[in-house]
């Protein structure tokens, strides 16, 4: 194991991916607690698909991927929230419509310009090689901002997640914070999907908090535990992906599934003792 680690970290690109990836997993798991509890789990999946479409367009027109996809996905996130507030179109249907449409646009743009290639494959399933220097710096800065905001606004996020009506009556601008959470999620997804792939990115958001909720019963406990679980799964996922030569996104998801199963078993056992 130490040999593998030493070998792993002798590559600059892996080191960079690990640094960004750990921060992204941390962001995703923290935001995920609020999203899962508010029944917004599928928003991650939808935004991942939107990010895919945006990336395809960016590559086709030779633009910087993050600079194109961040604004597009943030807009989509705000739109999805707005639609959810509207009674006539149900939120889950809206997500299905938006995500398949952007996937379609991405595929058409790509096949008209350069044809399906390894880049597109990487966007779908993720790759550790995908990040350029600029992506890494932008990714670091964005995830640092997400983390900072989450810590500063922790108490408000709790109140808004637990009880929107009460928070609103207490003078909290609930729709502002909902939009903020959606924007932070959008940013996290765009940064993270380079590694995880657009098809798997939502697992970073949903899995860790579900796992933590098996064992912890306070909000703070769940938040801290899901951050730790997410970071560990990400790191081990990279190591396993490298040593077995399998895609990194998939290994991280499988590790998250393993952690969930473990916590689920421990949680069920605890009820009997």
């Amino acid at each position: 194991m130490p040999d593998i680690l030493r070998e792993l970290f002798s590559y600059d690109f892996i080191l960079r991916a690990v640094a960004v990836g750990i921060m992204v997993s941390l962001c995703a798991s923290l935001l995920g607690v609020s999203l899962v509890l508010k029944r917004y789990s599928m928003i991650g999946d939808g935004l991942g698909h939107v990010a895919f479409g945006a990336l395809c367009v960016a590559v086709a027109f030779n633009m910087a991927p993050l600079l194109v996809s961040v604004p597009v996905v943030v807009t989509a996130a705000a739109l999805l929230l707005r639609i959810r507030g509207n009674v006539r179109i149900k939120g889950d249907a809206a997500i299905a419509v938006i995500s398949s449409s952007s996937l379609a646009v991405g595929i058409i743009v790509t096949s008209l310009t350069q044809g399906m290639n390894i880049d597109i494959y990487n966007y779908m399933f993720g790759s550790i090689l995908a990040m350029s220097d600029r992506d890494v710096y932008l990714g670091m800065a964005l995830s640092a901002a997400v983390l900072l905001l989450f810590v500063l606004l922790y108490n408000v996020i709790f109140a808004v997640t637990f009880d929107e009506d009460f928070a609103r009556a207490a003078g909290v601008n609930v729709s502002f914070y909902n939009t903020l959470i959606a924007i932070l999620t959008a940013v996290t997804i765009v940064v993270g999907m380079r590694i995880m792939g657009s098809l798997l990115i939502s697992s970073l958001i949903v899995f860790p908090s579900l796992t933590a909720m098996r064992l912890f019963s306070s909000f703070r406990g769940v938040v801290i535990c899901s951050g730790i679980v997410s970071t560990i799964c990400f790191f081990l996922g990279i190591v396993i992906s490298y040593s077995l030569d399998i895609p990194v996104g998939a290994s991280i998801v499988v590790l998250n599934l393993a952690a969930f199963t473990l916590f689920f078993a421990a949680g069920s056992l605890r009820k009997y003792f």
Partner: peptide
Amino acid sequence: FPAAVYEVVLSGCLASRRIVTFY
């Protein structure tokens, strides 16, 4: 919802101020 009772009660203090980083 996984929240401790004191976390829920404490969130009632939110009303008295604009931004609460710590209670």
